[in-house]
Simulated assay, not measured.
Amino acid sequence: MASRIRLEDRECPLSTTVEHVGEWWTLLILHDAFDGYTRFDQFQESLGISSSMLTTRLKTLVADGLLERRPYRTSPVRHEYVLTELGRSLRPVIVALAAWGNSRLTPTERSMILVDAHSGEEVEPVVVDAKTGCRLDDSAAYVFTAGPAASDAMRSRYAARPAMPAEEAKVGPEDSRTALSRAASTGCA
């Protein structure tokens, strides 16, 4: 896919992510992959996409490291497309996008919902801070700011906000159990 990122946005994680997954068919192919589709004909039948468009998008997803192309038959050679670890890490993004789409609809208008695989109960996906478990949809409480690797242009954009200390940027996220436990103690879960 041709780059549509403005020069000044090359360091912005949102811009670079959209460059990889912001195309209509790409998101739908990834959604099908999360639903277990792996073969060209499965994607094509599910999406009603042309062979040439599907070929192009699958090649891009493989080149970007989101899917891995593996042979599943040798005579004739046939390949399947399997999510990589990097590709699987996009699942929360797909879930959040679907949840946002459903939030605009009444429950009776929703054609697809997310449920607990064991209980069958509908769940409400939200994005939370891994440290506290607090929801991040409060735009007054959580804002973007320049990070430790920010350029002068990025620092200028966020000059009114404090930059993240380098030692905080190096700390990895906690596991979900720890975050939920901390959320319970902070009262924001």
Rank of each mutant, 00 (worst) to 15 (best):
A140I: 05
R69F: 04
Q44E: 09
S52F: 06
E122S: 10
G133N: 07
L83V: 08
A184Y: 09
Q42I: 01
E11F: 03
A160G: 14
R104M: 00
R39G: 10
R6A: 07
L58C: 12
E124Y: 05
L67K: 03
A183P: 06
T56S: 14
A166Q: 09
T16G: 03
A99T: 01
L90D: 02
A183M: 10
P76Y: 04
E174Q: 04
V93M: 08
S176I: 15
P148C: 03
S51L: 06
Y72N: 09
V143L: 14
P165N: 02
Y37E: 10
W100S: 12
L67A: 02
T26I: 11
R155P: 11
M154E: 09
A169T: 11
E23V: 08
R78I: 06
R57Y: 01
D137P: 02
Q44N: 10
W24N: 11
V95A: 07
V171R: 06
Q44A: 07
R88D: 07
G48N: 03
S111C: 12
C12F: 00
P92M: 08
Y37M: 15
V127C: 08
G87W: 05
A160Y: 06
E19N: 10
A99G: 08
A159R: 12
S139G: 09
S46F: 09
T17G: 13
L83M: 12
R182H: 15
E85R: 04
Q42N: 11
L90K: 11
C188I: 08
E8A: 11
R157Q: 15
H79V: 09
T145D: 02
T178R: 12
E174L: 13
A146V: 08
P148T: 02
R104K: 05
W24D: 14
T84K: 03
V126H: 06
G120L: 09
Q44L: 06
Y81M: 13
T84P: 02
V62W: 00
A140M: 07
R161C: 14
